[in-house]
Design a protein around this nucleic acid. Sequence first.
DNA 1: ACGACAGTTCGGTGCTCATCGAAGGGTTCC
DNA 2: GGAACCCTTCGATGAGCACCGAACTGTCGT
Lengths: 236, 236
Amino acid sequence: MTTAADLAGLAALLADETRAGICLALLDGRSWTAGELAAHTGVAPSTATAHLHRLVAGGLLVERRQGRHRYVQLADASVAQLLEDLATRTEPGPARTGSLRAVTASAALRRGRTCYDHLAGRLGVAVTDAMSGRGLLERGSGFALTPAGLAWLADLVGWDPAQPRPGRRPLARGCLDWTERREHLGGLAGAKLCETFLDNRWVVRIGSGRAVRLTTAGHAALRDHLGITVTCSPPR
Amino acid sequence: MTTAADLAGLAALLADETRAGICLALLDGRSWTAGELAAHTGVAPSTATAHLHRLVAGGLLVERRQGRHRYVQLADASVAQLLEDLATRTEPGPARTGSLRAVTASAALRRGRTCYDHLAGRLGVAVTDAMSGRGLLERGSGFALTPAGLAWLADLVGWDPAQPRPGRRPLARGCLDWTERREHLGGLAGAKLCETFLDNRWVVRIGSGRAVRLTTAGHAALRDHLGITVTCSPPR
DNA sequence: ACGACAGTTCGGTGCTCATCGAAGGGTTCC
DNA sequence: GGAACCCTTCGATGAGCACCGAACTGTCGT
């Protein structure tokens, strides 16, 4: 039996624009740091801290301390589902009732999508797996590239690894996928890889959303460069 | 594209205990009057008015003016779905991810359930339909009983129609079902009928919730008294 | 060891909003 | 027509809370 107070308490977590912005940002499945979320929502770090406390206490987010950073992400896939249901209601237009269209769109998202600026979904995980044998090391939490792996990647994406990198973005980082429940390659390497995939039209965006589709050229490229075959049609 | 402000605005509608209580009350599919909701949530009528304005403006509720009454109900089935999803999250325990259990429970609810104090779901609609040929008239919005229908009902539920009724509850009223999207019999007549069904064990409650199941005796009673057959196993 | 950095705690400020009572407008019943 | 009733509008009140800056703790790089 759910009381009105319980329901109101849950809704109150999302009833603030800043907290809503945090949750929408986390909807991409990545882990964000408290500072990134503060900057993204335009509030002071102290304010972001308070919001994250409430969201974690409310069970919507989980946190992972790492050194002086505090990473947060959505607690589980059901939270992401709930957020997307709510977000759907705020959009005008027809086809609001859990339509076939929404289901297939969701299935497309599961197959492959961009996650912030790198590849996610089954496609992202498959690419990450394939790279594991080519110089990508799973290092506790996150990833690292061997020199050979870096050279291989640099050759693929056409980019000089010796050249100094602006900013301090980590080269390779892990990103937990909320549909696959698996880590996949993010960071600068993941972004460059995704850029290359899009530039070469190995994947193309479906509509204006985050979902992507593997092209015929993409199939060939994956086979040639990584020796894998990713099914493009829904399994089962 | 959903903005954080949109999401927060939607969540804010449910972030108040009184408004949450209103929505949970409406989850039974009935239309409630503003006064009933004020009494149910324990606030002044003026306060309830303000809340209903916000909920209607936000698209969660629809209203229907009838004389000096203002009836409100959930805008559509997707709102009910959303509320139940949120309510599920507030309950602790496992099996939170849209499990088979939740789906079958939902299917049982669609087949038959009590709606406040009368029968709803396919069962409720079927009974209402069958009574249409036996003295139940659809009167614009709502229902009315002919003298013959009243006598027939009084005989079935063992109740003297001549005896003065306490309170002012309408004898027969319509109640829109959010799974069937059809009107069914509510009001005092619907309550008495439901009481008789439960007392005679024509229907029994499934677990502790609102879902009910038609018994073998119930099948026979429906055939004898109303000449209808309601399937108890899931169709299709 | 030192500075730079990420995050936290704390006190103060201001705004939003839920609430009520009183007064007013419609509707129904007698 | 008048009384009872349902609902609404309008101020006033008070509590909750989102926000910031400043001071503080802990971590990383040099």
